[in-house]
Design a protein around this nucleic acid. Structure first.
Length: 392
DNA sequence: AAGGAATTCAACCGCACTTGT
DNA sequence: AACAAGTGCGGTTGAATTCCT
């Protein structure tokens, strides 16, 4: 159930984590690695449940967690991925190096959603609000027996056209599929999605992303310091510096969000990451950041991510496709466009160094480590990719 | 300056899934 | 096959913070 079994037998702390607790957990994980979370609190001397420890580590203590405001590239990517994946925050997070699903979810709910609404875009469907209403009505008629949430996720039919609002928003909604025949015909056609996103959809209307982007360009120049600009990390760094003398990373927020304050849209994401590193990790972090955008960026070329996506989608039954066939299709597509995954010798060297660093300690013990291992994330610029596709 | 409203985001909850026995 | 324990994920909550009057 929700509360972990260990929580029932012990009197456990809840609420915010103290610096001392953070230090204990951090020291324990960096020493022994991630194994069985349920045993972590006891062994680390924490009055917390394992689940809470896991969450704290993943969302906050992990050395490669990036904090601070989202760059425009990240924001665009989130909009893009949400359009494709719906509220699958964990999957979206795998495409944003250093960002956690929780952070992205919060950012979406507090910021992007609002912006989209202001621009007349339905954040659920990514369609203009008036069109969404119409299409939603159509869908309701088509699936009148279904109790699903309309427009929570995007589905692509066999001809590659997006059908919004035909499936539930999460994997837990599987039981709500209105028509198995219909679902079985929904083939994930990523290339179509790019068509949709980057240029025009099949009705010839401008893509929502472009619309969103245009709006952003209006909003962005020289914003005054308001809640809008200070949110997501624009806090005094001293508020977050615990000053641990141990291996604990400096958890200070990095306020390098000048990109939102000026015309410049370039954000060196990795800098904000490295700034939080302890002395122990600083060099590694810098090496890592030198190869642009931290250590884990979407890797499309080698197909691992695509397999992951494909498998995950199958698990969720949101998409039905032949993984091998579609992956090959995707691989050739992305190779053709050289989308991401260009791995230079330099980058490979850096990856090797990274693997030789702290990550190697427990990489054999962690299944989920793969999600932020540099091995799986060749390093490229997200903005370059987006710009390239926009040009197309 | 004070206090209420609005916003943010860390953390919790509940469910589904996976793994082990 | 059935059950229990462990894990992962998305939705939600509420304390802390900031904004506004």
């Amino acid at each position: 159930m929700g509360r972990h079994s260990c929580c029932l037998t012990q009197k456990l702390r809840k609420g915010l984590w103290s610096p001392e607790e953070d230090e204990k957990l951090f020291n324990y994980i960096t020493t022994f690695g991630v194994g069985c979370w349920s045993s972590v609190p006891k062994q680390a001397g924490l009055q917390r449940c394992g689940k809470s420890c896991r969450l704290r580590w993943i969302n906050y203590l992990r050395p490669d967690v990036k904090r601070g405001m989202f760059s425009q590239e990240e924001e665009d990517l989130i909009v893009n991925l949400h359009q494709l994946l719906g509220n699958r925050w964990a999957q979206i997070a795998t495409k944003l190096p250093g960002r956690t699903d929780n952070e992205i979810k919060n950012f979406w709910n507090s910021c992007i959603k609002k912006k989209l609404k202001q621009q007349g875009i339905d954040p659920n469907t990514h369609m203009p609000l008036n069109e969404t209403n119409e299409s939603s009505n159509e869908n309701i008629q088509m699936n009148s027996t279904s109790s699903m949430d309309i427009g929570q996720a995007m589905v692509i039919n066999s001809s590659g056209v997006f059908l919004d609002g035909l499936i539930g928003s999460t994997s837990t909604d599987q039981a709500h599929y209105p028509d198995e025949d219909l679902i079985s015909k929904q083939v994930f056609e990523p290339f179509s999605s790019f068509e949709f996103q980057m240029g025009s959809d099949q009705t010839g209307s401008p893509s929502i992303l472009s619309q969103y982007h245009n709006q952003q360009s209006y909003n962005r120049p020289v914003l005054p310091v308001t809640k809008e600009t200070h949110q997501h990390g624009m806090m005094s760094s001293s508020d977050y510096e615990f000053g641990f003398s141990s291996m604990m990373p400096n958890l200070a927020y990095n306020c390098d969000h000048s990109n939102n304050m000026t015309d410049s849209t370039t954000t060196d994401i990795s800098e904000s990451s490295s700034s939080r590193m302890s002395n122990l990790f600083l060099n590694e972090s810098k090496e890592c950041s030198g190869s642009s955008s931290s250590c884990n960026v979407l890797n499309i070329q080698d197909g691992n991510e695509l397999h992951m996506m494909g498998n995950s989608m199958l698990e969720n039954s949101a998409f039905s496709w032949d993984i091998t066939e579609e992956t090959n299709k995707l691989e050739s597509t992305f190779q053709e466009f050289q989308f991401n995954g260009v791995k230079s010798e330099e980058v490979e060297e850096e990856e090797e160094m990274k693997i030789n660093s702290w990550e190697v300690d427990d990489r054999n013990t962690q299944q989920h480590r793969q999600s932020y291992s540099s091995e799986n994330f060749p390093l490229t610029s997200l903005s370059e990719d987006l710009e390239y596709f926009e040009q197309i």
